[in-house]
C-alpha cells in the first residue's frame, strides 16, 4: 500500500544553514507518528516544507503517491493535508465558531458564495458546533479568540485543522505553551481522532511522545538520525546521548 505521505531526498537551507538534509520519510495511513529532535533541529521547517509554506531546494513530496511538491499551501490543503502551527496562527479578532466555520466552509466549497448570509449556512454551523463540542469549546463559541486563555487557543488551532477533515494531519507542538496538566486534554482530543487519519506530531515532552506515538522519527541538524518504534528509539544509544540524555538531565 502506498504510504499516506512520502518524502524523497528533501533539502532546504537558509543561506549557509542546512535545515533539511536529504530527508527520506514515510507516513503510513492511520499513523500516529512523532517527530522529535532538539531545538533548532529543523522540525518546524520540515512541517513547513510538507505543508507548502516553504519551497524545498531539492527533493519530492508525494501525497497518496501523487507529487505535490509544486503545489501551493492552499492547494495542498485541498488535497488533504491539514496542519497546526507551533505558535498560534488564528483569526484573533473572530469568534471561536467563525474560526472553525471558515475552515469548514472552505472545505465544503461554499466560502465563495456571495448571495446567501453566512448565518444561513446551517450545514457549516452544525458541523462547527459538533467539533467544538468534541473539544469542549462549545460554551465559548461566541468568544473572540483573542480573549481566550492560551491553552484554549491551542484547541481552536486543532479544531480548525479538524474542520478541514484532512487525511494527513500535522501538529507542530500542539501542546506548546500549555500547562502540563492541560496538555493531556489536548492529547486526549488527538487520540480520539478517527483512526484512518495519518497524524504526524512534533512534541518535546517524552512522556507524551511515548504514550501516544506508535512510531518515532528523530531529527538532528536537519537530518534523520533514526526512526523506529518507541521501544527502539528509547533504547538507542545515539538518541540517548544526543537527545534524551540532554532533555532528561
Amino acid at each position: 500500500m502506498t504510504p499516506a505521505l512520502e518524502v524523497k531526498g528533501l533539502c532546504r537551507s537558509f543561506g549557509a544553514l542546512i535545515v533539511a538534509d536529504h530527508i527520506d520519510f514515510q507516513l503510513e495511513r492511520g499513523a500516529r507518528h512523532a517527530l522529535i529532535g532538539p531545538n533548532g533541529a529543523g522540525k518546524s521547517t520540515f512541517v513547513n516544507l510538507l505543508a507548502g509554506r516553504l519551497r524545498p531546494d531539492a527533493g519530492r513530496i508525494l501525497l497518496d503517491g501523487q507529487d505535490i511538491t509544486r503545489l501551493s499551501a492552499a492547494h495542498r490543503v485541498k488535497r488533504g493535508i491539514g496542519r497546526t502551527f507551533q505558535t498560534n496562527t488564528l483569526f484573533r479578532h473572530l469568534a471561536v465558531l467563525d474560526n472553525v466555520a471558515l475552515a469548514i466552509a472552505e472545505r465544503m466549497g461554499v466560502s465563495g458564495q456571495l448571495f446567501r448570509a453566512a448565518s444561513a449556512h446551517q450545514e457549516v454551523i452544525e458541523e462547527a458546533r459538533a467539533l467544538l463540542t468534541m473539544l469542549n469549546l462549545m460554551a465559548l463559541e461566541k468568544t473572540v479568540v483573542r480573549d481566550l486563555p492560551y491553552g484554549q487557543q491551542r484547541l481552536v488551532e486543532i479544531a480548525i485543522a479538524l474542520g478541514l477533515r484532512p487525511r494527513v494531519l500535522i501538529l507542530d507542538e500542539p501542546a506548546a505553551g500549555v500547562p502540563s496538566h492541560e496538555s493531556y486534554l489536548i492529547f486526549d482530543a488527538i487520540s480520539q481522532m478517527p483512526a484512518d487519519i495519518a497524524i504526524l506530531f512534533i512534541e518535546h515532552d517524552m512522556d507524551l511522545v511515548f504514550r501516544f506515538a506508535r512510531r518515532i522519527t528523530v531529527l538532528a541538524s536537519g537530518a534523520i538520525l533514526m526512526e523506529g518504534t518507541p521501544k527502539e528509539v528509547e533504547s538507542d544509544r545515539k538518541v540517548r546521548e544526543i537527545y534524551l540524555g540532554e532533555s532528561r538531565g
Binding site: A73, A74, F91, L102, E106, Q113, G163
Partner: peptide
Amino acid sequence: LLNSPFGASLAGIRDNRTRMEGIGA
C-alpha cells in the same frame, strides 16, 4: 455580500492571511 461566507472569508484574509491559506483558501 459582506454578510455572506465570501464576506466572512474577506475578514479572515484581513485578520490572518497565513491562516487563510492554511485552510485552503
